[in-house]
């Protein structure tokens, strides 16, 4: 299967005055289409830096980054905005829903920036909300929803744009265990339907639900192993989406 993500000697160096800090010291890995991967590491390991690079919010200092077969490491701000819009679906720890918009409008937002017509937008957003099981709450505002529901809306937002990859940053970090499990189950369902998912987390339990764990330390990959079926955590039977 084709690689959705491939990085080659990816480096990110921050300049603080005269001092150069290498947050990433040359990473090489690839994520094939349909894989569900966890990226782990203690704070300061370069986890966030990698997430920013994979999410096209930042550019590498050196090395190459291919997303969906296209090199995106040297693009302009506006071109990167378009890449984020079409190829990436973000899920944040604190949901980042806009309080002035309803759930449906929040899900529509990426499609608005894509320039899609209103009816088409609405249709796709409604489908995405139905997929995460919130069809009947589509006209509620974020503050009228529970944390788990808000995170599901944000998953729907990531889904609506039909991205190449879903990038989740500690998606269960702010949730109680029941809601967290719900969201995790959603990711597993998405994975089952063939989506590529990258979860950045420091929660071992969350990571053990995925197929593969990439461990970072001091800006380098220190381990990159598949999760053996024997130690894999499951949530029972997961329906395909």
């Amino acid at each position: 299967m084709a690689d959705v993500i491939r990085v080659e000697s990816l480096k990110r160096i921050y300049r603080m005055g005269d001092v150069e800090v290498a947050a990433l010291q040359g990473l090489d890995f690839a994520i094939p289409e349909g894989q569900m991967v966890a990226i782990m590491g203690p704070s300061g390991s370069g986890k966030s830096t990698l997430l920013n690079l994979l999410g096209c919010l930042d550019r590498p200092s050196a090395g190459r980054y291919f997303l969906g077969g296209e090199e995106v490491g040297r693009k302009s701000d506006d071109a990167l905005a378009d890449v984020r819009n079409r190829r990436i679906g973000f899920v944040f720890q604190n949901y980042n829903l806009l309080p002035q918009l309803t759930a449906l409008e929040n899900v529509e937002l990426p499609l608005v920036y894509r320039g899609l017509g209103r009816t088409q937008r609405r249709k796709r957003a409604e489908d995405a909300l139905a997929a995460v099981g919130l069809a009947e709450r589509r006209h509620h505002r974020p503050l009228e929803l529970s944390g788990g529901q808000q995170q599901r809306v944000s998953v729907a937002r990531a889904l609506a744009g039909e991205p190449d990859v879903i990038l989740a940053d500690e998606p269960t970090g702010n949730l109680d265990s029941t809601s967290g499990e719900e969201v995790l189950r959603l990711f597993l369902a998405l994975h089952k339907s063939g989506r590529t998912i990258v979860i950045v987390t420091h929660d071992e339990d969350v990571a053990l639900h995925t197929e593969r764990i990439v461990r970072l330390r001091d800006g380098r990959v220190v381990a990159d192993d598949p999760v053996p079926a024997s130690s894999r955590h499951t949530l029972g039977e997961v329906q395909e989406l």
Binding site: G55, L57, D77, D78, A81, D82, R84, N85, R86, F90, F92, N96, L98, L109, P110, Y113, R114, R157, G161
Partner: peptide
């Protein structure tokens, strides 16, 4: 600021 950050993350160009 957060809202602006989110809008940019999900694909809003500068002009938007």
């Amino acid at each position: 600021t957060r809202e602006i950050g989110l809008r940019k993350a999900i694909g809003a160009r500068r002009g938007a």
